[in-house]
Design a protein around this nucleic acid. Structure first.
Lengths: 240, 240
DNA sequence: GCATATTTATCTGTATACAGGACTGTATGA
DNA sequence: TCATACAGTCCTGTATACAGATAAATATGC
């Protein structure tokens, strides 16, 4: 394949690629990763691949079993519920801090970005919408001034992304309004109101997550079903 | 050296060993890690060592610079402040959940453990006290029923441990009382009171952290100074 | 004497080789 | 027909070799 860069910055490149595969469950839940095959498909040897894999183990996007190898994490509703719960905790705390600390300019900048880039959701895929939503929330949490909060959220987002593709389908129209309301309350430094909006915006019940996880399994193992993944290379059962 | 197991479960063993070195700054801040030397001292080759190193990079205990190698993280007061802030956020949220969810038996079990193992602090080193304190708090957060919260706290603890060795010196006697008070309020399911105690128990101001960081640098680079590390192999400048 | 250029040595980044263990499939026996 | 034992294959885990890059040390010119 000419035109495809293969060599440079190997570990970071491999890391990004595999992170994408794991976050989207292009590697299926509990599926073992064949290092040799993966290495070949990424144009590298097993050594840097294993290094990237080990980083993803530390991030809990993959699971490592000694003597067995690396596996994609399971699609475990309880764990996803824990992550949603954690996300609410972090974002509520972050916006509380942001109400105290963020500059008017930074708040206004994010509001502007929301108005220009976050408005026209027609013609965009669910994946693109989720990607923008993640970016919006990570910037929002960044207004707390606490970089560790942002890192945690970044990891959580990668791990719940797959479920969020299904969740977003139901909430596209609501999301926009909530984002605008949130920014308005943030500009007014109303922390209490912000927390309430965020909680309602993010919070999920366990039974909802189970529903989305079921939909996820359908999309992964019965790719012809309707859903946010329909027509995507993932749903078509991409073979690398 | 007979009696010293070297072979088995290589990566996990190396990971634990290096995590210890990094958490205690036995590898000094910003110091480069010589893979070959480290591998030899651990009785392994560079390959598994680098795999463990990559895991620690993902946990932010080490920093990786392409072409340069692996470095111990800097002793950065702002980052440590962020971690303390995050720790308060997580523990407050956890105890709020624990008040709702934890069983009386689990609460009582932790209280018992505190009474038996957490009482006699005489004759114990500061490091041992911090180790018990970490364990206590991780169990406490576990009462929330949210495993992701525990994982986050576990990482935070490793990253602020070094500073806590200095902090604990000042707070040994206070700590015990606060732990007992906390358990009493938790048994009464008084979330508001628990949060207040925890915040006062954990929270640090940036200037305090800067003070401890300074003390840390002294201990690392002038090992003959007094402090919680005095007489420890770390303070003596252990050469592996 | 100081700054710069050049050489040397060390260390990283990656590929590859090999040994040991895990798994699959088949065949044999009850 | 089912369970179990065995053999072959595949894959992981680790050591090692080598190339490229980085840093250090020496030498050279001003």
């Amino acid at each position: 394949m000419p035109g495809e860069t293969v060599n440079p910055a190997s570990v970071d490149r491999i890391y990004d690629a595999v992170r994408e595969l794991a976050a989207s469950y292009a590697i299926k839940p509990d599926e073992r990763i064949n290092e040799g095959t993966l290495a070949k498909s990424l144009g590298a040897s097993r050594t840097p691949v294993r290094e990237a894999l080990n980083r993803l183990v530390a991030e809990d996007l993959l699971v490592f079993q000694p003597g067995k190898g690396f596996f994609c994490r399971a699609l475990d509703p309880q764990q996803i519920f824990d992550l949603y719960e954690l996300r609410v905790i972090l974002e509520e705390a972050a916006i509380t801090l942001a109400c105290e600390r963020a500059s008017d300019e930074d708040i206004e900048a994010l509001r502007q970005d929301l108005m220009t880039n976050g408005q026209n959701y027609e013609g965009k895929s669910v994946k693109e919408l989720v990607a923008y939503d993640e970016q919006f929330h990570e910037t929002l949490v960044g207004l707390s001034g606490n970089g560790e909060l942002v890192k945690r959220l970044h990891n959580i987002n990668a791990r719940i992304r797959f479920v969020r593709w299904f969740d977003m389908e139901q909430r596209i129209s609501i999301t926009r309004g909530e984002h605008r309301e949130l920014m308005s309350r943030l500009a007014a430094r109303d922390a209490e109101a912000c927390r309430g909006i965020l909680r309602g915006h993010i919070e999920k019940r366990l039974d909802q997550i189970i529903t989305y996880a079921r939909a996820g399994y359908s999309a992964l193992y019965l790719p012809d079903a309707q859903g946010p993944l329909a027509g995507s290379p993932l749903a078509a059962g991409s073979q690398g």
